[in-house]
Amino acid sequence: MSEFFAMGGYGAYIWPCYGLTLIGMVALAGWSFAKQRRLTREAERLKALGKESRQ
């Protein structure tokens, strides 16, 4: 197991690359998903409000 993490002595180069890529991609995906959900719900809420006030 420790051999796997050592990566033949190059662990200090390989793991930061994978870690940074993971953090960057997860952060961007999370931000994008949350943004579309928040705005889609907000649009639905405003649409419902508009219908109510017209009745």
Binding site: A29, S32, F33, K35, Q36, L39, T40, E42, A43, L46
Partner: peptide
């Protein structure tokens, strides 16, 4: 696709 969806929804809002 998530980001385009967000942009479309932002315009609607």
């Amino acid at each position: 696709l998530w980001r385009i969806k967000a942009a479309v929804a932002a315009k609607r809002v």
